[in-house]
Simulated scan of single mutants.
Amino acid sequence: MPEVIFNGPAGRLEGRYQPGKEKNAPIAIILHPHPQFGGTMNNQIIYQLFYMFQERGFTTLRFNFRSIGRSQGEFDHGSGELSDAAAALDWVQSLHPDSKNCWVAGYSFGAWIGMQLLMRRPEIEGFISVAPQPNTYDFSFLAPCPSSGLIIHGSADRVAPEKDVNGLVEKLKLQKGILITQKMVPDANHFFTNKIDELIGECEDYLDRRLNGELVPDAAPKKLK
């Protein structure tokens, strides 16, 4: 897949990019874990999510947040990284103006950034949040959450305890017009040690069902003409 360098808010950003075969292929942006705790775009979960979307015809991008790899800038505690993600989506959209739909997938810190991004970008129609950390990061911005998506986590995750993730999911499930799907990977820790295949299998099943028109909200709001 092509290695790419594109302009971000704090300098150049390094990524890996694979265009879809169809001119109007949907876009998928994949966001990696915390930059200060070893997170990069080459994380195995990020790598696998990238190929999951690519194999289903998406135009797909994963990239290093500022300060990681060849990406310039300094860690900015989430604010700058959100700007990086928005710049990454802008860059892909500039290459694919016929693409109308987008998905965002993120793992851990990247899940937090991804869900902030979908609040800003109405074209994001679906999300996958792997091991989000509502005990560490503030998710109160999801009011209301504009898109349906998957929240998936491990039952043995001590970094993002099950009760905290359940609390986030319950809040989101109160909203009408979207459908939040929650999946638990049994005995998986925050890093999904020896459980990555199970994790990706659940994500693939969810994405395939969405692409087949399943998992539609019961009470979707009527669009004004």
Score class of each variant (00 low, 15 high):
residue 58 F to K: 06
residue 85 A to D: 10
residue 74 E to W: 10
residue 87 A to H: 11
residue 68 I to C: 10
residue 119 M to N: 11
residue 102 C to V: 12
residue 123 E to D: 15
residue 43 N to V: 02
residue 117 L to P: 09
residue 93 Q to P: 09
residue 93 Q to K: 13
residue 77 H to W: 10
residue 28 A to K: 00
residue 125 E to Q: 14
residue 47 Y to M: 08
residue 130 V to E: 07
residue 37 F to C: 07
residue 101 N to E: 15
residue 24 N to A: 13
residue 33 P to M: 06
residue 32 H to M: 11
residue 56 R to H: 09
residue 76 D to K: 01
residue 46 I to L: 01
residue 105 A to N: 08
residue 131 A to N: 03
residue 47 Y to V: 05
residue 101 N to Y: 15
residue 124 I to H: 06
residue 51 Y to T: 11
residue 104 V to W: 04
residue 85 A to Q: 02
residue 121 R to C: 11
residue 59 T to L: 10
residue 116 Q to P: 12
residue 88 A to N: 07
residue 109 F to I: 12
residue 100 K to G: 11
residue 86 A to T: 12
residue 27 I to A: 00
residue 89 L to Y: 03
residue 103 W to L: 14
residue 42 N to A: 05
residue 86 A to C: 14
residue 51 Y to N: 13
residue 26 P to I: 03
residue 110 G to Q: 08
residue 87 A to S: 14
residue 116 Q to C: 09
residue 110 G to S: 10
residue 134 P to C: 03
residue 54 Q to E: 14
residue 37 F to H: 13
residue 91 W to P: 09
residue 124 I to D: 08
residue 99 S to F: 05
residue 119 M to C: 14
residue 133 Q to T: 09
residue 126 G to C: 13
residue 26 P to Y: 00
residue 134 P to W: 00
residue 84 D to N: 08
residue 114 G to P: 10
residue 45 I to E: 02
residue 29 I to T: 00
residue 78 G to W: 00
residue 86 A to Q: 15
residue 98 D to P: 04
residue 123 E to R: 12
residue 44 Q to G: 06
residue 79 S to T: 15
residue 118 L to G: 10
residue 81 E to P: 06
residue 58 F to W: 04
residue 126 G to W: 04
residue 51 Y to F: 13
residue 98 D to S: 15
residue 94 S to E: 15
residue 123 E to A: 14
residue 50 F to L: 04
residue 60 T to L: 07
residue 127 F to Q: 05
residue 70 R to Y: 13
residue 115 M to P: 08
residue 28 A to P: 02
residue 80 G to A: 07
residue 57 G to S: 04
residue 58 F to P: 04
residue 62 R to A: 08
residue 61 L to V: 06
residue 96 H to M: 13
residue 68 I to R: 10
residue 97 P to I: 09
residue 48 Q to W: 00
residue 77 H to Q: 14
residue 56 R to T: 04
residue 129 S to M: 10
residue 35 P to G: 07
residue 41 M to H: 00
residue 87 A to P: 05
residue 101 N to P: 07
residue 62 R to K: 15
residue 134 P to K: 00
residue 52 M to E: 14
residue 101 N to V: 12
residue 44 Q to L: 13
residue 92 V to T: 02
residue 24 N to G: 01
residue 50 F to S: 01
residue 93 Q to F: 09
residue 59 T to R: 01
residue 105 A to W: 00
residue 117 L to E: 11
residue 89 L to Q: 00
residue 38 G to T: 02
residue 48 Q to P: 02
residue 61 L to C: 12
residue 57 G to K: 00
residue 43 N to A: 04
residue 70 R to P: 06
residue 75 F to A: 14
residue 72 Q to G: 05
residue 98 D to Y: 11
residue 104 V to C: 10
residue 126 G to Q: 10
residue 100 K to T: 15
residue 90 D to K: 08
residue 112 W to A: 03
residue 118 L to Y: 03
residue 54 Q to I: 04
residue 122 P to M: 07
residue 78 G to E: 03
residue 94 S to R: 13
residue 62 R to P: 08
residue 115 M to G: 03
residue 100 K to F: 12
residue 63 F to G: 08
